[in-house]
């Protein structure tokens, strides 16, 4: 039997809330699938749509951007900009024939280890039936 498909996920986590929230998941020894590799950025507002497309281009099956809750951004309003950009990225993905579900945005505070765990578990479950992402993957 063929090995089960394991989606590769890149997660852009803001340093102040979401990365701290994922640290809390660790400190609390919560378990989630190892499919996700986190990249800590200063703020969700610093995630350019190009980063997201680049991740798909380099073979990601899913991309997550996670920041502080609206109103809680360490830099006042970075996550509002992120939220606006994300809407555009979703539209663009549809346009180029990439399932919009492959891209997710979430708000995870430093106190939400459980939420982070759940987001990763759910995301993996959403991605598995979608199979490998091939539309944007650069030919190897």
């Amino acid at each position: 039997m063929a090995e089960e498909f394991e989606p590769k996920i890149v997660a852009f986590l803001c340093k102040w809330c979401s990365s701290a929230g994922s640290d809390l998941a660790g400190v609390s020894r919560m378990q989630y699938p190892p499919n996700v590799v986190p990249i800590t950025v200063m703020c969700s507002g610093s995630v350019s749509p190009l980063y997201i497309l680049s991740a798909f281009n380099k073979g990601a099956d899913g991309v997550l951007v996670s920041g502080c809750h609206p109103g809680d951004c360490h830099y006042i309003k970075g996550n509002y900009y992120a939220r606006r950009r994300i809407a555009l990225v979703k539209e663009l993905m549809e346009y180029i024939g990439l399932e919009p579900d492959r891209f997710q945005m979430s708000w995870v505070s430093a106190a939400e280890g459980i939420k982070y765990t759940k987001i990763i578990k759910d995301f993996v479950n959403i991605l598995k039936p979608l199979g490998p992402q091939t539309n944007l993957r650069r030919s190897q």
């Binding site: 994922s22 640290d23 809390l24 998941a25 660790g26 400190v27 020894r29 919560m30 378990q31 989630y32 699938p33 190892p34 590799v37 986190p38 800590t40 765990t117």
Partner: peptide, 22 residues
């Protein structure tokens, strides 16, 4: 960060090692 974001949240040693390398 290979502790909070890796070793503490996974059990499968092989997969956790690959993730830690990444």
């Amino acid at each position: 960060n290979i502790r909070e974001q890796c070793s503490w949240v996974h059990k499968d040693k092989e997969k956790a090692t690959i993730k830690a390398e990444k």
